[in-house]
């Protein structure tokens, strides 16, 4: 029998904040309902005994991949900043981080 987990609306709010998602009240209601349905569905995996099974994080056996530590030209600053919503002094501009 699958283990039943329920996710409260408060937990949904907490997860949303971890993911930096602002949700409307409607979205919170809908996600609480949908996420609980989906978690129920995930419960199916508990049918399988996997104690001795190695997890697969990647299907190909790649170990650390190195390249020579050679000097290469950087991307031009103006290219890198070309898509930025706000630029200040050759930097990405953001709202004030530190109080003065």
């Amino acid at each position: 029998m699958a283990r039943r987990v329920t996710l409260s609306r408060e937990q949904v709010e907490q997860v949303a904040f971890l993911a930096r998602l602002e949700l409307t009240d409607d979205e919170k209601d809908r996600l609480t309902e949908h996420l609980n349905q989906i978690l129920d569905h995930f419960g199916k995996l508990q049918e399988l005994e996997t104690e001795a099974v190695e997890p697969t994080s990647h299907v190909i056996p790649v170990e650390n991949v190195f390249r020579p530590d050679a000097e290469r030209p950087s991307m031009p600053v103006e290219d890198v900043l070309a898509n930025a919503p706000e630029v200040q002094d050759d930097c990405f501009g953001v709202p004030r981080v530190v109080e003065t």
Binding site: V15, A19, L21, H34, V53, E54, T56, S57
Partner: peptide
């Protein structure tokens, strides 16, 4: 948004083994 929520939850402290690790084992 829904998928980000599922993923954030599945990776969050206390649930990682039950979801993400379990899924990786079933992937095997």
């Amino acid at each position: 948004k829904q998928r980000i929520m599922i993923g954030t939850y599945a990776l969050s402290a206390g649930y990682y083994d039950a979801y993400y690790l379990k899924a990786q084992k079933v992937r095997t």
